[in-house]
């Protein structure tokens, strides 16, 4: 119980850290950290045996090591300015993050979950993860931050699925599949094309594509 609470609080802090960070490199490290923390959650909930162990190892491999490595590789290849460029300020984003946490805590008290389904704070932690991921997508300029934002949001969805994993839910497989999709498609192909076409990965320039 204590371990899972510590993990969840750490996850919430990581979600805020996404919004406060100014360097792309730090952002990838935070993604890795979130992956490692996520990998630890099945162990903390179900104990170190059976499905939990396998799931945990898989998550560690994919989310804790694989994706961050891919992102870091892309980052070094793209040779872009290593600074996160915000549309609106870091302190405002943080304020929005805290607001998101408040909202999700409130939402949890309103939603009729079966008692005992989620450990305390798991749902808010997952929801804030989704919120801060989407905030990264909305409020940051670079395509790379958008990819990381999608990853963070997807991590939140995965976190929601962890307590259900014991029942062998399809949620989990779907979300892992979605991961692969995001990773392969967006990372490998899209970013390079964007960089080639626009000589930048600033998504603000996409507006020149409209009719």
């Amino acid at each position: 119980m204590a371990a899972i609470q510590s993990l969840l609080v750490a996850l919430v802090v990581v979600n805020l850290a996404y919004l406060a960070v100014t360097r792309l490199k730090t952002l990838t490290r935070i993604t890795a950290l979130q992956g490692v923390l996520l990998a630890a959650t099945p162990l903390a909930i179900a104990g170190p045996h059976g499905h939990g162990l396998i799931l945990s190892l898989a998550v560690l491999a994919i989310k804790g090591i694989g994706f961050p490595w891919l992102v870091a590789r892309t980052l070094s290849r793209l040779e872009v300015n290593p600074v996160v460029e915000p549309y609106f300020g870091f302190n405002m984003s943080l304020l929005a993050g805290v607001g998101g946490l408040l909202f999700s805590l409130w939402l949890e008290s309103r939603l009729p979950f079966p008692p005992g389904l989620f450990p305390p704070l798991l749902f808010p932690a997952a929801l804030t993860s989704i919120f801060s991921g989407l905030t990264l997508v909305v409020a940051r300029r670079k395509a790379l931050t958008q990819v990381i934002g999608y990853l963070a949001a997807e991590n939140g969805i995965f976190l929601l699925g962890v307590p259900l994993a014991a029942q062998g839910s399809v949620w989990l497989e779907l979300s892992v599949l979605l991961d692969v999709f995001v990773a392969v498609f967006v990372m490998g192909i899209a970013l390079h094309h964007i960089n080639k076409t626009f000589e930048s990965i600033d998504v603000g320039r996409f507006c020149s594509l409209r009719d």
Binding site: V9, V12, F90, L105
Partner: peptide
Amino acid sequence: VPRLLGSAGALAALSLVL
């Protein structure tokens, strides 16, 4: 410096809310 204080404030708010 304001960004450092902003992060500290967010952490404080987080701690308080929880």
